[in-house]
Amino acid sequence: MTAVAERNEAPEAKAEEVPSFQVTMRIARFDPDSDKGHRWEDFTVTMHGTDRVLDALHEIKWHLDGSLTFRRSCAHGVCGSDAMRINGRNRLACKTLLKDLNIDKPITVEPIKGLPVEKDLIVDMEPFFDSYREVMPFLVAKGQEPSRERLQSAEQRERFDDTTKCILCAACTSSCPVFWTDGQYFGPAAIVNAHRFIFDSRDDAGEQRLEILNSKEGVWRCRTTFNCSEACPRGIQVTKAIAEVKQAVIRGRV
């Protein structure tokens, strides 16, 4: 327990000015070796006003229970690794400040829904990436390779600017009630990433993508519940992007 000792020794005079508080994290634990399903476990930790849910999870993993399992990488809202259900809403643990939650009650943390849980907060993301791959999320350009850059006006870029921001965290897809019951549905994230190329003036495979999304498990599964737009940590107007793809399918062109 040297880690604990080091922590206590470091006298962070400045950090003391940040208010600290006790908070209880109620975490859904799942042990793949037991067939009992998940169980809730409470951990009470002392955190600071500048701390995020991710810091509380670190505090638990590093000082209380090393078996707690979750994904994270960048810790700054860029990599999309740590989407989880915090107090019943999909958020990135690294972008959710504890002080913005009600710390008088335990904060519940669960894995995102609709994907198979592997351990604790980790889900199998493969089905999510499979549908992402199916919409061909890469530039497809026909004809002669240009001898200079593929130029694009500011307006042409603006057309799909919103959907370029996706970090593939799956917060949207795993907040969608249609996806919860129909795992075959492409899901909002795949449609967002199709949108990013469909409306890109440099891309020539828009029609093919529209055809893919016009299938039985495509855009028509969407019932406009707006859960995805609310869940997106990048503030992407996901439902709007889906509606634009629906429009494009009906018109048969971009």
Partner: peptide
């Protein structure tokens, strides 16, 4: 894996 099955035009879900 991206080669589509040629399902085109009007579709019942639409």
């Amino acid at each position: 894996r991206y080669r589509r099955t040629g399902q085109r035009g009007i579709n019942t879900e639409m």
